[in-house]
Write a protein that binds this DNA or RNA. Structure first.
Length: 370
DNA sequence: TCTGGGGTCCTAGGACCC
DNA sequence: TCTGGGGTCCTAGGACCC
């Protein structure tokens, strides 16, 4: 049995919106919404706390967000910029422990089990991290801590914004019990609806639920969910994770019927995917074409090749072949995309290559997945 | 109100082999 | 005349996360 661990979950507050407010002082104190234009069918990628007061949330259609909050300033995302700031933040985390697992540009797990004593406890360590992130980036980070990932993650959410909440050893189950099931990572709209229909609304009720019933509802995941609800979670913090796919997709501002328009965008996406494959010194064996019809029905079609590739023309050719099989005259599409999967490093496909820092999702440079 | 773009993981069925 | 079991690879769709 592993001993008691100390896991932190660090999560930047309203990250993209906060970076914009920091970089553009005229935006401070105002509702800021980062995301695509409403005319281009954009959605909200991040909303400042001023905007959240109007009910604006991530993933909301931008048209609706701006109706909820007409005085909001919409800002197009600058992912390169967020990436730069992310690297600074991850470097701060890494200065405390090498055991960090980035989950996105603005979020990471840290295993500080070995550092806790030296820092005078988990709370002191978290306080130090918050101060250092603020010093380096002038941004706020919320930190949650506890015996495992589930507890740490929910604790960081519970403390937001600018939060710091450490759940004491032994108090996990009592901490989780009153919270809604939706607070658990892994329970989305569908699972929530199923559980609610079964009379299960809180994490505490999930912890007490019948194992057989959960297994019928969710398969093997059902029992895992109940364990999480009981505050039990042995998943390690994994600093290095292999990238499994690279994708590029476009939602058209207006539905597309014309085949040559589809083809043109598809070639552009293939080019983009190929470029990113080469950047990471990787090759793909599977090419996946993704199409979303105007009625939102989404299909995928894939082709697996004997040899991995990073060539634009090969990727485009496979994707176009799949497109020809699927598209019927008169079909209307709102999205087209390409995914390259079944990835291998160059050395695995017969070429000499040194270890490439871009290969892993988490790297020493703090390159979170983009 | 009309739904992004980047990902991960899981399930289930079919082909094929021994 | 009826019909194994295990393993691997592949495909399509869906739930979920940030």
């Amino acid at each position: 049995m592993a001993g008691q661990r100390t896991i932190l979950h660090a999560d930047m507050d309203a990250f993209y919106a906060s970076v914009e407010q920091r970089d553009r002082p005229e935006l401070r104190g105002r509702p800021v919404v980062v995301g695509g234009a409403p005319e281009a069918r954009g959605v909200v990628a991040a909303a400042s706390y001023e905007a959240r007061a109007f009910g604006v949330r991530s993933a909301l259609p931008m048209s609706r967000a701006l109706r909820l909050c007409p005085e909001a300033v919409r800002v197009s995302p600058r992912f390169d910029r967020y990436g730069e700031v992310s690297r600074q933040v991850m470097a701060v985390f890494r200065s405390m422990t090498p055991l960090i697992e980035p989950l996105s540009l603005d979020e990471a797990f840290l295993d500080i089990t070995m550092q806790t004593t030296a820092h005078g406890g988990a709370e002191a360590a978290a306080r130090r991290l918050k101060a250092e992130v603020r010093r380096v980036t002038a941004l706020n980070v919320s930190i949650g801590g506890g015996a495992n990932k589930t507890v740490a993650k929910i604790a960081s959410d519970a403390g937001k914004p600018d939060g710091l909440l450490i759940v004491a050893a032994g108090a996990e189950r009592a901490f989780l019990a009153p919270l809604p099931i939706r607070a658990l990572s892994g329970i989305g709209p569908k699972a929530e609806a199923l559980l609610t229909a079964a009379g299960i609304r809180t994490i505490g009720e999930l912890a007490e639920a019948d194992a057989g019933q959960l297994e019928r509802m969710f398969g093997s995941r059902g029992v895992q969910l109940r364990e999480m609800a009981r505050g039990i979670d042995q998943r390690p913090v994994e600093p290095v994770q292999e990238r499994k796919s690279i994708s590029a997709e476009t939602t058209f501002a207006h539905d597309v019927v014309d085949g040559s328009d589809l083809r043109q965008e598809l070639r552009r996406l293939a080019d983009e995917a190929a470029r990113r494959l080469r950047e990471r010194r990787m090759r793909a064996r599977t090419i996946v074409l993704k199409l979303r019809y105007s009625n939102f029905r989404t299909i995928t079609r894939r082709a697996t090749r004997a040899q991995p590739t990073d060539e634009r023309d090969v990727i485009a050719g496979e994707a176009e072949r799949l497109l020809d099989v699927v598209v019927e005259p008169g079909d209307r599409f709102r999205l087209i995309g390409v995914t390259c999967g079944h990835l291998s490093g160059l050395e695995a496909s017969g070429q000499l290559s040194l270890w490439a820092p871009g290969d892993a999702r988490a790297t020493p440079a703090g390159d979170a997945k983009l």
